Amino acid sequence: MSNLEMGLNEILGRSIAQWTQGQHHVQTPITGLSLSRWEQPTEPTSYVMDASLCLIAQGQKQVMLGQEIYTYDASHFLFTAVDFPVIAQITDASPERPYLSVLLKLDPHLLAQIMLEAQISFQPSTRERKGVAVGTLTPDMLSAFIRLINLLSTPQDIAVLAPLIIKEIFYRLLISPQGERLKQIVTMGTTGHRIIRAIDWIKHQFSQPLCVEELAKRMGMSVSSFHQHFRDITSMSPLQYQKSLRLTEARRLLMTENRDISSASLQVGYESLSQFSREYKRFFGAPPSEDIKNLSLSTFSSQQ
């Protein structure tokens, strides 16, 4: 990392720290922009990660998608082009040097608009299909994020200036070495764009039975092609993706809404409680009752 990048990272870290005092997560008034702060490493946590661009000013984080692990830090960004059910863990954080990060949700329509306005060329490729990647941070991207967060101090400027800076950030992502992955997914008519539509359909219907043949037909694809491209982008089959969404939502219901195991399993689409318990244990490493107990103890300990 150059001296310029180190200096910009320090400025970004101070900006994030200013707005996250005493809080783990801050949803800012700027649409799609959130800030995070943790003063100790975390246990692996499952959640659905929005299509987003994530920067770390201080610390390190691992994101597991399927069997693949993506690690990023103050020198790298992570972007996800679609919403993914992931298992994530902050691996480097302390009270003296807390983990500080910023996340900006991606807008596929704005990304496509930028490609047209900037006349960014696109050639369909069979390479780099994965919808998640780690890239190297540049001073230009760091500077744009600093200016975006600084708008929180002048809220009257947000409506006019935030969209311009966000547009700049998306442009810099598109022209980065990792931009090819993004272009293949946001460009209308591409296979990647059809997989995004399929993912969106599954997200909104995850508690319902999934017929892959019907969904492939809806997307105008053969079943074999649909399966292959879905796995290329998400590292999962459509049914595995649906199962991950179901189990992640069930865990949220059990942990944050105090649902009993039976009602949570029914709500996310399981008809068999024993099947739910087996798949939950396989996915999270412990049966529902034991997992929630461990999570509760972990949360209590972290607040002491």
Rank of each mutant, 00 (worst) to 15 (best):
F170N: 06
S272W: 06
N258Y: 07
T91D: 12
I146K: 00
G131E: 09
T42F: 02
T256W: 04
F300G: 04
L110V: 15
T154I: 05
R251P: 00
Y72I: 11
A133Q: 08
H204I: 12
L152I: 01
W19D: 14
A286Q: 06
Q62N: 10
A198D: 05
T28F: 01
V186K: 01
Y70A: 05
S52W: 03
L239V: 12
H227R: 11
I196Q: 09
V132A: 08
T234D: 00
F226Y: 06
V268M: 05
V82W: 03
S101C: 06
R37G: 10
S121T: 10
H109K: 14
V223T: 15
L53N: 02
V212S: 04
L174Y: 03
A112W: 14
I261A: 11
I202N: 05
Y270G: 04
G131S: 03
P108Q: 04
A286C: 04
Q67E: 13
Q18N: 10
P139G: 02
D50Y: 06
L116Y: 07
I195H: 05
D232A: 13
L116F: 08
A216Y: 14
G269Q: 07
N9Y: 02
I185T: 07
R197N: 14
Q275G: 05
L35R: 06
D107C: 09
Q113E: 15
H193F: 08
L151C: 00
K61H: 11
W19Y: 15
E214M: 08
S272K: 03
E213N: 12
A162R: 04
F79S: 10
